[in-house]
Design a protein around this nucleic acid. Sequence first.
DNA 1: GATTGTTTCAAACACGCGTTTGATGCGATC
DNA 2: GATCGCATCAAACGCGTGTTTGAAACAATC
Lengths: 242, 242
Amino acid sequence: MATAPASHPTTDRPTGDDPRDRILAAAGREFAERGFEAATVRDICLAAGVNVAAVNYYFGEKRRLYIESVKHAHRERERQVPEPRWEPGTPPERKLRDFVGNLLERMLGFGQPDWQVRLMLRELLHPTEACRELVEDYIRPHFDGLVSILRELSADSLDAPRLRRVALSVVGQCFLYRAAGDVVGMLVPASERESHHAPARLADHVTSFTLAALGAGPPLGGAWSRGPGEGAGSDGSEDGAP
Amino acid sequence: MATAPASHPTTDRPTGDDPRDRILAAAGREFAERGFEAATVRDICLAAGVNVAAVNYYFGEKRRLYIESVKHAHRERERQVPEPRWEPGTPPERKLRDFVGNLLERMLGFGQPDWQVRLMLRELLHPTEACRELVEDYIRPHFDGLVSILRELSADSLDAPRLRRVALSVVGQCFLYRAAGDVVGMLVPASERESHHAPARLADHVTSFTLAALGAGPPLGGAWSRGPGEGAGSDGSEDGAP
DNA sequence: GATTGTTTCAAACACGCGTTTGATGCGATC
DNA sequence: GATCGCATCAAACGCGTGTTTGAAACAATC
């Protein structure tokens, strides 16, 4: 069932002459495209332009090469899309927009090849031993940053669990476009996809959706006059007791 | 690197005596757990209690068995968790809560084994030839149902593309818990996970978050936030038939 | 009981996999 | 120039895979 290697040998061969790096790059692409089991050491070495034995010479075994290539992809992506920094006094609405924009850019950005993200995605969806490291070093700091932005936005009116759930709502909205992008593409007309599914456009949507949910921005739908006692056509049976 | 089969031979052997069905069930579990490449015909047959040659006798080849087991899982899940029906006049807030509850119950529900969902998830994340069928027959109708609920909720003040993006925000919030559940589990303390990540609790959160964003419910961070009491009887007693 | 067609089985087959091996090339060091 | 250590290579080694085979077990029909 094996076909040609996933990478394009003519363009992919890195100019760097370090065989170790060439193997890491080729392995990342192959693992991202085919998964750990289906990717073969032979194809990786063919794409990297090295002998089959090189993998075991430099990495000992296939599993170790996989772990190293996940870490490598993570570092590369972090270098390519650095996280935003704000000077003191930046309004939290702006921070949220920047954060979401950065997250989506990192996940969907067309500027760079996306195999790094796809490789990391595989880890998140079906964790192996490389996953916990990835979460602790990479994801948790970002997640905590998001939570503190949301804490600012809600003016400390939400407790930590609630803030975490809101943060997961934000991440979930972005995550869908990356993880299930193919299915989203089938559900949405092509014209709309091109015009409104660019990272910046999606960031606008997710941000305003979240701000509205927190009461820190205008609601998306009908008129919602702030202040108790107004229902805007709602019959008042919101969420709690069904 | 192969370990023991994913299924539990003592409890999994179906009572039905049709070998074809036994193979389908065992194959679904193995493919869901390990993926197409890593799952082996031998393990599947061991779990199903049939000879190795049975797979080729009944299905011709491994690939065909995979496709058939995806379809089988889809049909089974649809039978187990039917979509909710409402009588005319049901308020859209209630419909949204039911829809989200049903979606989460279907994705996360602990009542049934979850291998069907995991198998379908694999298809969505890395589509093969079985995917398009799955989207058109199964996902699009549900998605359209959600869009029309949201249209009701927004009192026709949002155009179709905007409605679709809101719908994707709803689905994304739920999807994260299913697809990246392991990572979510690492980010959230265990106590909170147990108390607030049951399907019904998550449905409450996603629903109120969405209603607030649409202006059809009180914002989460503002004056409406209810006191520390909360907890008002939101057990899972009322989504679609479990 | 013989015959026919279907289902099950243990055994084998051919192939591709990850990994190992031992020889070879090559630059640095003495 | 001899020696050493590192890097590279073609070839092979086990092993597990999906698949095939040919015979045995079984059920139904004549």
